[in-house]
């Protein structure tokens, strides 16, 4: 990957089983949304993790402009749950480099199962992790 990619967005279109992924460095806004139950989550997310690792390596911190990762999932499988943690760890690394980050876990307010999943991540990761219940 060349450094040119740093000004480029990462975009992956959603399918029935894989989420929309929209990482927009210029807007400091990263988004994952939709269903995520690919047969092989590692295979699906490897390019995403690779992109993110390269971004973390090359990114120059902007202390006044936090990077926000918004996660708005519908149904997701356990292997996605594991890969998400790997992704969140990369946000920890970004934070250790001096870049403020924030993860927003968005879910339907009445969906206590999603709230619990968010709470588990909130405990597991060392970056500001906000639970955002939506009232539909």
């Amino acid at each position: 990957m060349s450094d040119l990619f740093l000004s480029e967005n990462l975009y992956i279109e959603p399918t029935f089983t894989t989420p929309e992924i929209r990482f927009e460095p210029s807007k400091q806004y990263f988004f994952i949304g939709g269903n995520s139950y690919p047969e092989n989550s590692l295979k699906f997310y490897t390019p995403v993790l690779e992109w993110m690792r390269h971004f973390v390596e090359k990114h120059s911190p902007l202390p006044d402009h936090p990077i926000v990762l918004e996660v708005r999932l519908e149904y997701f499988n356990t292997s996605t749950a594991k890969v998400l943690l790997d992704l969140f760890r990369l946000f920890e690394t970004l934070q250790e480099k001096g870049q403020p980050v924030r993860i927003r876990w968005v879910y339907l307010a009445e969906d206590t199962e999603m709230e619990d999943a968010g709470l588990d991540y909130q405990v597991a990761v060392k970056v500001p992790f906000e639970l955002v219940p939506l009232n539909e």
């Binding site: 690919p38 092989n40 989550s41 499988n77 356990t78 292997s79 749950a81 594991k82 943690l85 588990d120």
Partner: peptide, 22 residues
Amino acid sequence: YNATLTEGNMSEKGGAGLGLVQ
């Protein structure tokens, strides 16, 4: 579940060893 989530490895077929636990 939490230990496998944080420390486990993914299989070549993409399983995380968490499905039946969950």
